[in-house]
Structures are given as C-alpha cells and as structure tokens.
C-alpha cells in the first residue's frame, strides 16, 4: 500500500463521507417522521388510512432500495416530477426507512399494556396527554434497540446512492479505481471510512441494548 496515494485521496474520501453522512442523516430523520406517522395511524387504527399505510409498508419492505431509487430517479421525472439526485437519495431512504421505523415504533407502542392507557384516561388525561406522558416514553425505550439497528441498516443502505450518480464513498472508490488503478488503496480507504461512520453507532447501539436488557426503569 502506498501511503502517499492514500494521503492524496484522503480529501476526496472525506468529502464523499460527508455526503454519505449528510444524506444518511437527513434521510433517516424523514424516515423517523414517516415511521412515527405510520405507527400512530396503526396504533389508533385510523380507518382507511391504516390500509394505505400497511400497503406502503409491504411495498417498502419487499423491494430493494436500489430499485426504489431507479424508479424515483429515472422513472418519476418522465411523469414530470423532476428530482435531483440528492433529493432522490433522501426520498428513497425515507421511503425505505419509514416502514422499518414504523415497525420498530409499532412494536414499542404495542408493548405498552392497555391498563396504562386506561389508568391515564381515568386520571382525566386526553388522548394526546396519554400518548405524550404515558405511552410514548415507555414505547420509546422498548423501540430503541430496533431503532438503532435501523439507523445502522439505513446508513449502510446509502452505499447504493452511487447508482444515481451521487458522489458518495462507493462512487469515489469506483471512480478512483477506474482512473488510477490503485485498487488496494482505494478499497482500504473505502472500508476505513465506512468503519469510521458505522463503528461508533454500532458500539453505542450495543451499549444501549445491553443496558436496556439489564434493567427497566429505576436502575
């Protein structure tokens, strides 16, 4: 491996990593919003909308992100919905991640015993107060492990963004390999940068999960 080559590539990879993180974070935030919305609809069993939500979840979970992106990026503009690559990447990640987040939140919400809702109601709380002060705090703590797993999963999924010509880490690696044939250095940097992004979250996830498993509230 050539240290000089690596040094010369570093800025390019750094920029690409920033793009990966930026799009990943924005996409995940939207995925959380979509997921919360969908899980609430399912939790309150809102008629009709609930069916639409479950259709969306099935579609989103049973198609690959790459195919979703191709459809959004190359297909939709033909219908007069113009989209730039970054927006597409974010939209794709939100479309895919929304269903995964919805499932994580839903299982958390469903884990809260019905008696909790009833006792909140019997204390005179309305639906919103019950959700905010009683259900959500308990549901969230149950959802956290699945939530962290989803964040890692979605960040990894951003690796297909290069297919819609976003200059992310994969794109940069492939591009440089094609130009200079420094395959080993390129791949080394690729792996290192992904580790740099994913390892901290993965460690946080493991710690949180362990703590959740060890005890509930009050320890």
């Amino acid at each position: 491996m050539d240290g000089e080559v690596i040094m010369s590539y570093l800025p390019l990879y750094g920029e690409a990593a920033l793009l990966t993180v930026k799009l990943g974070v924005i996409g995940i935030v939207f995925a959380i919003i979509v997921g919360l919305f969908c899980s609430m609809i399912q939790y309150y069993k809102v008629p009709v909308v609930r069916r639409i939500v479950s259709v969306y979840i099935e579609i989103s979970r049973n198609t690959p992100l790459l195919v979703q992106l191709f459809f959004i990026f190359y297909g939709l503009p033909r219908l007069g919905i113009p989209t730039d690559a970054e927006t597409c990447g974010i939209a794709g990640l939100a479309f895919l991640g929304g269903s995964y987040m919805a499932e994580a939140f839903r299982s958390g919400l469903e884990s809260v015993d019905k008696i909790q809702t009833e006792s909140a109601y019997s204390l005179g709380m309305n639906r919103l107060q019950t959700m905010r002060y009683v259900i959500l705090p308990q549901a969230m703590s149950v959802s956290i492990p699945a939530f962290v797993a989803n964040v890692i999963f979605l960040l990894k999924e951003t690796s297909v963004f290069s297919a819609i010509s976003l200059m992310d880490l994969m794109f940069t690696a492939k591009d440089l390999m094609g130009m200079d044939h420094n395959t080993v250095e390129c791949l080394f940097l690729l792996v290192s940068f992904y580790l740099l992004i994913l390892l901290p979250i993965s460690i946080v996830g493991t710690v949180v999960e362990r703590r959740m498993r060890r005890a509930g509230f009050g320890n």
Binding site: D113, Q116, S122, L123, G124, P137, S141, F217, G218
Partner: peptide, 16 residues
C-alpha cells in the same frame, strides 16, 4: 374523569 378516581386490580402505575 378527573372527578372520578379509579384504582385497578392490576398494578397500573406508570413504570417509567
């Protein structure tokens, strides 16, 4: 409901 207090059979305290 605020004017009616209720206590249930199963422990209904908020665990969090």
């Amino acid at each position: 409901r605020q004017r009616i207090g209720m206590v249930f059979q199963s422990y209904d305290l908020f665990p969090h």
